[in-house]
């Protein structure tokens, strides 16, 4: 029961805190333009160009491709493209961790799908004769094994790299080592807990008990693992490992936001609204006469 509670609460908090952080960033005041080229939605993306390459650009339609923006975003999310291009050695281990996490997210969902399927009378096993049962079984096995292995390897390697790399070491605070250890501990106990049954029947059983609030005799290891995963899920969004939230804003709302303030545009509307704001604090240098309107 207690473990079920931990599972539910930690997932809820993970989602809740992440959404709250996103909400905080989303409702921050409008900032001045700070785009940085290449901007994917621009027609001239290939060479880093923008609408400013046109004479009297404001009198022409601003041709943008949101598709290209989504494609670039997916390249970042799925492959961590910038790291791949700019620091390959680190990419290997960072990508191992991230891919591992993606796999484990899929694995967790598949475990739930498996449980629901079984509740509906479909056997999820290698011996099953139905396509669905077989599919769920094998994909669960694949994502679980790959996810646990890559995730643990990645978290461990990132930790060790930070410990032994002379440069990274200088900039890493004790808390940042802890961040990685939290991930590593949750993932490593995952290997210890589920590693003995790679068909993941046990995992599915435990999942079934957890999601249906069925009391079961959990081993010490299962208890430890569930608690550690719970801590990890709550800790990620409150720490800066919540960069999945930040990254959306840095790209979409800062580096790729070049919408010009044209007459009648939504931006103009926002600018109008922002211009009425009077800050409660002001700068003290003598050349600044308070109260100064915020500088966009």
């Amino acid at each position: 029961m207690l473990l079920s509670l931990i599972a539910y609460i930690s997932i809820l908090l993970f989602v809740g805190i992440s959404v709250y952080k996103a909400y905080k960033f989303a409702t921050m005041p409008m900032h001045g333009r700070m785009e940085l080229y290449p901007v994917p939605k621009e027609k001239g993306f290939e060479h880093g160009g923008s609408f400013y390459e046109e004479v009297s650009w404001w009198s022409k339609p601003h041709e943008v491709s949101h598709m290209r923006e989504i494609v670039e975003m997916l390249k970042e999310i799925l492959f961590i493209k910038k790291l791949f291009e700019n620091q390959r050695p680190l990419w290997w281990i960072s990508y191992a961790l991230h891919l591992g996490i993606y796999m484990l997210m899929a694995w967790t969902m598949l475990l739930v799908v498996g449980v629901v399927s079984e509740l509906n009378g479909i056997t999820v096993a290698a011996t099953d004769t139905g396509i669905w049962g077989l599919l769920v079984y094998y994909v669960t096995v694949a994502t679980g094994i790959v996810g646990l292995a890559l995730g643990t390897l990645g978290a461990g390697a990132l930790f060790l790299r930070r410990v032994f790399d002379n440069t990274l070491k200088k900039y890493t605070t004790p808390q940042e080592y802890v961040n990685l250890l939290v991930l590593f501990a949750a993932l490593f106990t995952g290997i210890l807990t589920w590693g003995s049954d790679l068909s993941f029947h046990t995992a599915r059983e435990v999942t079934a008990n957890l999601i249906t609030f069925t009391p079961f005799a959990a081993s010490g290891l299962v208890t430890l693992h569930v608690i550690l995963v719970g801590i990890m899920l709550i800790y990620i969004p409150i720490s800066k490992m919540s960069h999945y939230v930040g990254k959306y804003f840095t790209f979409h709302k800062v580096l790729w936001d070049n919408d010009p303030n044209l007459k009648g545009s939504a931006i103009e509307h926002q600018v109008k609204k922002a211009s009425t704001f009077r800050p409660s604090t002001s700068w003290s240098a003598s050349h600044i006469k308070p109260p100064d309107a915020p500088t966009l």
Partner: peptide
């Protein structure tokens, strides 16, 4: 603070997420 509204969001992002 709000005296710096014009860059608050980009600033906090860089400040917090490195």
């Amino acid at each position: 603070s709000d005296a710096n509204n014009g860059v608050l969001q980009p600033l906090l992002l860089t400040y917090e997420y490195c």
